[in-house]
Design a protein around this nucleic acid. Structure first.
Lengths: 366, 366
DNA sequence: GACCACCATTGGATCGATCCAATCCCCAGG
DNA sequence: CCTGGGGATTGGATCGATCCAATGGTGGTC
C-alpha cells in the first residue's frame, strides 16, 4: 500500500479496537511532574551533585555502596538528565543529522530512515531532519547543523562518484557514515552498503541450480554505478557456470520502459529466466511476459531487486536488502567515531549481502 | 522509481557533473571559527548582552540607532544564538516531534514529511523523529519528548476513530496538529486534511462533462473512513447529475485484488468510466481493462487518487493531494499554538481540496 | 607519629542564553 | 532648582548539567 490518505486503510499498527494497556495509572493523576534534576537527586541521597553525575558518567570513581543509593534515588524520582544542559556544557547533542531527499516517490531510503531512528533511539540518540535542494547547499547546511545545533554526526545517503560532501566533512572533522559506497577512489571514509553484485550472483546461481541455461539481464543505462555492479554479479555467475552470456538489455527505472525492453529480451534472445536490476524493472518484465502469453514461474522465471511491497504483491522473487542491519551498522560505526572523537581508528567499511526472497515468479515453492 | 540501492540510478538532484558554486572561499581557510556569542557581539558594539538579546527578541525596547549597530555586528560576526542555551533558559527547543510509522512500503506520508521539514526550516524549526510500535507506546513516548527534550509541538498522522493520542495530548496541554480528521466526534482539536469527497466529486463531474453516463466506483472495504468519504463524493456527484448509481465494488489496496474487482465491475456493470479510491486500485483497474481488451482513455476512462509516481508512470489521471499546502498549514497552526502558549484561540481545522491531474487514462489531452 | 599516596567526595566556575530588577538619562512640570 | 516619570540600558541571577581543582578520610611506610 503505497498510498492513500493520511488515515489510510489498514492503520499501520494497532487498530482502534485494541484497548491499549489498561494497567497504567500512577503518573496519570499528577498535574505537575516537577522535573527532577541532578540537584534534587543529590539532596535526596545526601551527596553532592557531582557524585550523582559521576554515578552516571564515571561509575568507577564512586564507591559501590554510594552508587547504589544514588541509583535508587534516580529511579525513585525517575530522573533523566536534561539534554539541553548537557549539550551546553559538553557540546554533545545526542542528535544525528539526516537529509531528506526530494524524490518523486518514496524509496527504500524511507525504510532505512525508520530503521536508523530505531537503532539510534536504543542508545538515546535522535534523528534530526534537514533538507537541501542539492549537494552544494547540503554542504552549507552542515555548518548550521554542526556549529549551531551541535549535531554529533551525520548520515549521508545517495553517494555518487565525485561526491563533494564527504571531502568537506572529512576536512571539518565531523563524524559521518554513508549508506552507499563512494564509487570513485576518493579518500576512504566509513560506509555501509549492500552488495548488489553478490545479490545478483546468488539470484543467478539459484536459477542455474533450477536448470535454467539461458538467463538474461535487464539493467539500467550504462552510467549507473549501482546498476553496473548488479550486472557484474549476473555476468560473473553466468561465466562461472560456463553458460553463454546474452547481451543485457537496458531501460530506465519505469515499468513502461522496462516492459518494452523485456519484451525484446524475451522475444529475440529466447531466455528462460531474467534477472532484473530492480523490482520496478521486474514488474515491467512481468507485464511483458504476460502480454506474450508466458506465465511467470512456469514458462519464464523472473527475479527483482529490493523486495519492495510491489514485489510481494506481484508474487515476485526478489533480493531483500538487509536495511535493519545496514542501519545498525551505520549507527554503530557513527557512535564509535563520536566516542573516539573521530581519531585513531581507521574508517570502517561494511558490505552486506542481500538475501533471496523466493516467490512464485521463480517456480512453485518447495 | 520506488526503489533501487541507496545510490539509486538518477541521483535525486544535482549530479556529479555540477561543479558546485565556485566563489566561496572566505570561511574555508579558517581553522577554528570560534563561535560568536551574545557576549562577543556585545563587546564589539560596546553595549551589554541584554541589549543584543533585546534587538533579537524585543526590538521595540531598543533605540533604532543602537539596534542598527548591533545588527551590523551580528552580521559581521555571523552570530546565531545557541539553541541549547536558549532551550535551557526558555524551555523552548525549536523542535517538533513526528513519529515514523512502520509501513510495509513508504506512503505519501513520506512526501508530507519532506514538506513539513521544509516549512519548519523556514521558521528555524527542526523535525525530530521518533518511533513507536503502536499508539499506546507512542503515548508513552510523548512524556520523554516533551519533558526531556522540550519538544515544542507534535505532528500526528494516521488518525483514526477512537484515537487515544489526541485526548492524552489535550490533557497534557501539548501543542499538536494532526494530518487527518478525527473520524469520530471527539473533543475538537486542530487538524488539516484533504477533502477526499470533494476530490472524487470533481473527478466524477469531469467524467460526466466528458459525456460518460455509467460511471463506476472501485473502493476499499466498508470499514475505512477515508474510503467511505471518497465513495460519498462519487455517489453524490452521480446523484446530482441525475445518473444511475451502479453498485460500487470493493477490494483491498493491492493491484491484484483490485484487478479482480475491476474486471467484475467492467464486465458485469458495463461502465464506461471508473473512479478509483487510490492509485493502486486504479492500476489494478488499468490492468483489468487491458486484459479485457479495453484501451484506457478511449474505451474506458480511469481516475486514481494520490497522484503518486505510479500514476504518472502509468499515464493515469489522478487526484493530487496538496501536500505542500497541508504541511504549511500544519506548521502554521502549530506555530500559532506554540506562540500563544496553546491558549485563547479555538482549535483550527483546514480541509483542502485535491486537484485533478489529467492524463491519458481519461482521454486524449486537450 | 609524621608523612605521603590514594580514593571518594565536594564546592565553585562555567557553557550561552534569558529573566528580572535596578539604574541611568533626559525632559516636562511644579 | 528639585522632582518624577518613562524610555533605554545594564548587571546579576538563573536554567541544569559538566569541568576542574581542592578537600577529607583512610591506610601504608619509615
Amino acid at each position: 500500500m503505497t498510498t492513500a490518505g493520511p488515515a489510510a486503510m489498514p492503520p499501520p499498527a494497532s487498530g482502534p479496537a485494541v484497548p491499549a494497556s489498561a494497567g497504567r495509572d500512577m503518573p496519570a493523576a499528577r498535574t505537575r511532574p516537577e522535573r527532577a534534576t541532578l540537584g534534587s537527586v543529590a539532596t535526596l541521597v545526601g551527596v553532592s551533585r557531582q557524585t550523582v553525575s559521576n554515578v552516571l558518567n564515571a561509575p568507577e570513581l564512586v564507591r559501590a555502596e554510594t552508587a547504589d543509593r544514588v541509583r535508587a534515588a534516580i529511579a525513585e524520582l525517575s530522573y533523566r538528565p536534561h539534554p539541553a544542559a548537557q549539550q551546553l556544557r559538553t557540546r554533545r547533542s545526542q542528535l544525528l543529522g539526516m537529509r531528506i531527499h526530494q524524490t518523486p516517490e518514496p524509496t527504500i531510503f524511507d525504510r532505512f530512515l525508520h530503521a536508523v531512528t530505531e537503532a539510534a533511539a536504543a542508545a538515546d540518540y535522535r534523528i534530526m531532519l534537514y533538507t537541501a535542494p542539492d549537494d552544494a547547499s547540503e554542504i552549507d547546511a552542515y555548518d548550521e547543523l554542526v556549529d549551531r545545533w551541535n549535531v554529533d554526526g551525520l548520515l549521508l545517503t545517495y553517494t555518487h562518484s565525485g561526491d563533494r560532501r564527504t571531502n568537506h566533512l572529512q576536512r571539518k572533522g565531523v563524524p559521518f557514515v554513508t549508506f552507499g559506497r563512494p564509487w570513485d577512489a576518493a579518500r576512504p571514509h566509513s560506509w555501509v552498503d549492500v552488495d548488489g553484485r553478490a545479490g545478483t550472483e546468488a539470484a543467478t546461481r539459484h536459477l542455474v541450480a533450477g536448470g535454467h541455461r539461458r538467463i538474461g539481464f535487464l539493467g539500467w543505462p550504462e552510467h549507473s554505478e549501482v546498476g553496473s555492479d548488479r550486472l557484474d554479479g549476473w555476468a560473473n555467475a553466468m561465466s562461472v557456470a560456463g553458460l553463454p552470456i546474452p547481451e543485457p538489455r537496458r531501460c530506465f527505472n519505469e515499468v513502461g520502459d522496462a516492459r518494452v525492453a523485456a519484451r525484446d529480451l524475451l522475444d529475440s534472445q529466447d531466455v528462460t529466466a531474467v534477472v532484473c536490476v530492480s523490482d520496478i524493472v521486474a514488474l515491467g518484465a512481468l507485464s511483458a511476459a504476460d502480454s506474450l502469453g508466458l506465465r511467470a514461474g512456469t514458462d519464464v522465471s523472473l527475479i527483482g531487486f529490493d523486495d519492495s511491497d510491489k514485489a510481494q504483491g506481484a508474487d515476485l522473487t526478489s533480493l531483500t536488502q538487509p536495511l535493519r542491519e545496514v542501519a545498525e551498522h551505520c549507527f554503530r560505526i557513527l557512535l564509535h567515531q563520536i566516542d573516539t572523537n573521530n581519531q585513531g581508528t581507521p574508517p570502517e567499511q561494511v558490505l552486506l549481502p542481500p538475501t533471496l526472497a523466493l516467490r512464485g515468479s521463480t517456480g512453485p515453492p518447495g
